[in-house]
């Protein structure tokens, strides 16, 4: 899906937990996330801390979208 959308000329960032799969399928901008059943959250945290974690992950994704890349790039926190 990532490739198909990117081939339409839209920059796309893939936020996922299993980065090797993302690399195999060919995403170019990748942001690693928390866990498979809750990529953008962590139920072990308080509501506020969890939202702050989500903010950080989305900001990382926005940074990835603003960054020119040559090939597959993983944007670690």
């Amino acid at each position: 899906m990532v490739k198909e959308i990117e081939s339409a000329g839209l920059p796309i960032v893939h936020m996922c937990t299993v980065v090797p799969i993302s690399l195999t399928v060919g995403a170019n901008r990748i942001v690693p996330t928390v866990a498979i059943p809750h990529p953008l959250g962590n139920p072990a945290l308080s509501r506020e801390d969890e939202k702050e974690l989500r903010r950080k992950l989305v900001r990382q994704a926005l940074k990835a979208l603003e960054t020119e890349v040559e090939g597959q790039t993983v944007f670690e926190q």
Binding site: I5, S7, A8, G9, L10, P11, V13
Partner: peptide, 16 residues
């Protein structure tokens, strides 16, 4: 993708 382009979207976040 076609729909996104038609709607004037600039960038996409895809979560898995």
């Amino acid at each position: 993708a076609k729909d996104l382009v038609a709607a004037g979207v600039d960038a996409v976040i895809l979560t898995s």
